[in-house]
Amino acid sequence: MNLWQQYIRPETVADAVTALTSAPGPALPIGGGTDIMLDLHQGRHSPVHTIVDLTGIPEMKILEIRDGRLFIGAGVAISHIALHPLAALYARALTEACDLIGGPQVRNVATLGGNVAHALPAADGTISLMCLDAEAEVAGVAGRRRMPLPELFLGPGKSALKLGDVIVGFYLPLAKPGEASAFKRIMRPQGVALPIINLSVWLSRSGDTSSPHPGPLPQGEGIKQIRIAVGPGGSVPFRARNTEAFLAAKAYSPENFTAALDILLEEIKFRTSAQRATAEYRRHLVGTLLRNTLAAAWERAE
């Protein structure tokens, strides 16, 4: 095959950056390799000279509370996140997404960094991080920088990462009482095992959060703040900012939901993917998906 000539496993981020920038030919970082190995094997990615394997870098495999935020190393395996109590406590949307990605064998090697860096508009990990207001720490030739997640994406499969850039990890605000998140997706039984649509919601609740609420859309109490991400809602992972703005500081009511859905349908640009789903079908599904995900986050936020 000779798809690459050199395979390097650095032990520090700095070494990884150096390896990427000093390779005599095209160089590529890999996490689990579950996307990129297949792209290389199947000729969707041009052959490279050097592969820089990031999974041996201890710093990138940490999942911990750091400076009042949840830090998840970009090299942490998806399965590890799915099972981690800190992630479940503070970033449920992410836990839920990670539990749905691939099967166990894929999850055991695939990384969150790879899921995000691949820059697909409907990657499950990415969409969940979008509502969690995640920030990426990126190391490059000029040192380290923090980037809000949306800034990482330029187009489908195209990230803002430059040669030598490595995502070290992600920082997420810790969910406080009255705040919660949820992630859901809809699949189709034929074809590739990626969702035809996925959606994540983070919200904070206002008002008396102790009384029980029958029914899916109880009246009265309010949404303080909300973030909604939808995939594929455009060429990059989509944040429904107009919808968020409308719902913020509003009652959690059927009327508001209906109005919010109208706004969402206005601001989102679904496309038709041949053999997968038409734009109309996605428009049809997004209401159900938003209702269910919102309800899950709302209930959790009690």
Binding site: Y7, G33, H41, I51, D53, S79, P104, Q105, N108, V109
Partner: peptide, 16 residues
């Protein structure tokens, strides 16, 4: 199984 975890060996670089 790699260190006890089920892993698909067809996409797992031997170097790892």
């Amino acid at each position: 199984l790699v260190d006890g975890e089920p892993t698909m060996s067809c996409v797992y670089p031997a170097a790892r």
